[in-house]
Design a protein around this nucleic acid. Structure first.
Length: 414
DNA sequence: TCTGGGGTCCTAGGACCC
DNA sequence: TCTGGGGTCCTAGGACCC
């Protein structure tokens, strides 16, 4: 029996959410009606476009491009700052409305989720009508629009929700693939990115339909297993379940940052590294894991990145231990060139409680208790409540990571 | 004084073992 | 005198998503 899957996608999420919030607070201008973007802080060199309005799109402003170039395209562009707490609230509110239509929801990202409507016709009626009800309820109650895609699997539902925006319901059932999906540029297929698309062009594959009908051996030869995957997708073949709680265990935790100033001294690099390790360590302990592998990433002023990694004998969740290995890795890798960005990533995670104490581990109750109490204070009073003295007046954030300010909220969701 | 930050999965090549 | 072949682990890098 065919499933019925819906994919709900908030239109220009960050920007719409900010717009809805401002209108609610009495603003008279709707950001969605003017050229506007949500952008990072240029002072700390995080100045890129995170979301754009449809009028901004008309100036060919792209998500991910520098605010500097966006302003060149449109000098009177309105730029508003990011506000993750607001996004989390909007996300939660959207998911809650979705739950009225099915008990089986899979959150895909902050602005997208799947809904398994199979068997729900008896409760809420025809899927297309239900999708309209869902869309209209979100618009009326929350003040922003979504697209809903409907089909028999997650891939097609997602492709459907991308068709025409905003505020639309689309179906893309298998019998509609030829008509609605095959004429689209191949780049618009899920999993065909900026590296794969040019390879396909060279094989004379320009539309999703071209890919669907391409010789499988040719694709395998040029693209290995990737070729088979995207050819299946082009034919609408995909069968993963909408799984709410079977959320796979996390594989790794990482934090990276573009440093507000160029770094050429080991002293500064150490501080940045430490602030990254603070965040990684805290998140690792919060998730209840120890890590076996630590990786350090350096990015120079040409924006070229390199990484260097090493395994522990055993595993750890101690900030200081992570830092020590990370520092060693950085010293081995860094040739002294000017750095613009740095990252720390841990992986090969072992659940805390299953961890076997290796003979190499120095039992360090004192350090463990220290980590614990610092985490507790930070969870309660915010990440800035405990700060290592090296960061005072350093011009650096004592804890570095994209979700620092919202750590409490983000972790509450998970 | 242009280019974020969070993920997952896959592959290539070298080291090493039998 | 000769230069196999399979398997695993490790590391670095690249692909994609939001």
């Amino acid at each position: 029996m065919d499933r019925i899957i819906m994919h709900v996608d908030a239109n220009s999420a960050y920007l719409s959410w900010e717009a809805a919030y401002r209108l609610q607070r009495g603003d008279t201008v709707d950001l969605r009606d003017i050229p506007s973007v949500v952008g990072g802080d240029e002072q700390s060199r995080h100045g890129i476009v995170l979301a754009r309005s449809i009028p901004a799109k008309k100036y060919s402003i792209k998500t991910g491009e520098a605010l500097y170039t966006a302003r060149k395209k449109c000098p009177n562009l309105t730029v508003v700052p990011v506000r993750y707490e607001l996004y989390m609230m909007c996300h939660n509110a959207m998911i809650n409305i979705m739950r009225d239509f099915s008990p089986n929801i899979q959150v895909y990202s902050i602005d997208e989720a799947f809904l398994d409507y199979t068997g729900m016709e008896h409760v809420h009626g025809d899927p297309v009508e239900a999708a309209h009800k869902l869309k209209d309820r979100i618009k009326k109650e929350l003040g922003f629009t979504v697209n809903v895609g409907i089909s028999t699997n997650k891939l097609l539902a997602k492709m459907a929700s991308e068709l025409k925006k905003p505020d639309m319901v689309h179906t893309l059932f298998p019998c509609e693939i030829r008509e609605k999906m095959w004429p689209l540029p191949v780049r618009e297929l899920f999993m065909v990115g900026p590296a794969t698309a040019p390879k396909l062009y060279r094989l004379n594959i320009f539309t999703i339909g071209d890919l669907a009908r391409a010789n499988p051996d040719l694709l395998t030869y040029h693209l290995k297993s990737w070729g088979k995957l995207i050819r299946d997708y082009a034919n609408g073949i995909e069968s993963s379940p909408v799984s709410e709680d079977a959320r796979p265990p996390i594989k790794g935790i990482g934090n990276s940052t573009t440093i507000p100033f160029d770094v050429d001294s080991m002293d500064e690099a150490r501080k940045v590294l430490l602030s990254l390790c603070e965040m990684v360590g805290m998140r690792l302990r919060q998730a209840g894991y120890c890590a076996k592998l630590v990786s350090v990433y350096l990015r120079n002023t040409d924006l070229k990145g390199r990484s260097h990694q090493r395994k522990y004998i055993g595993a750890t969740d101690d900030t200081y231990q992570i830092f020590r290995l990370a520092l060693q890795l950085m010293e081995e890798m860094w040739t002294g060139e000017t750095l613009r960005g740095m990252g720390v990533h841990v992986s090969e995670l072992v659940p805390n409680d299953l961890l076997q104490i290796s003979v190499f581990d120095v039992p360090n109750e004192r350090r463990k208790r220290l980590n614990q109490s610092i985490d507790e204070i930070r969870m309660k009073y915010g990440p800035k409540s405990v700060v290592r003295s090296v960061f005072i007046n350093s011009g650096l954030a004592p804890i570095t990571g994209g979700v620092t300010e919202d750590f409490k909220m983000m972790s509450a969701l998970l």
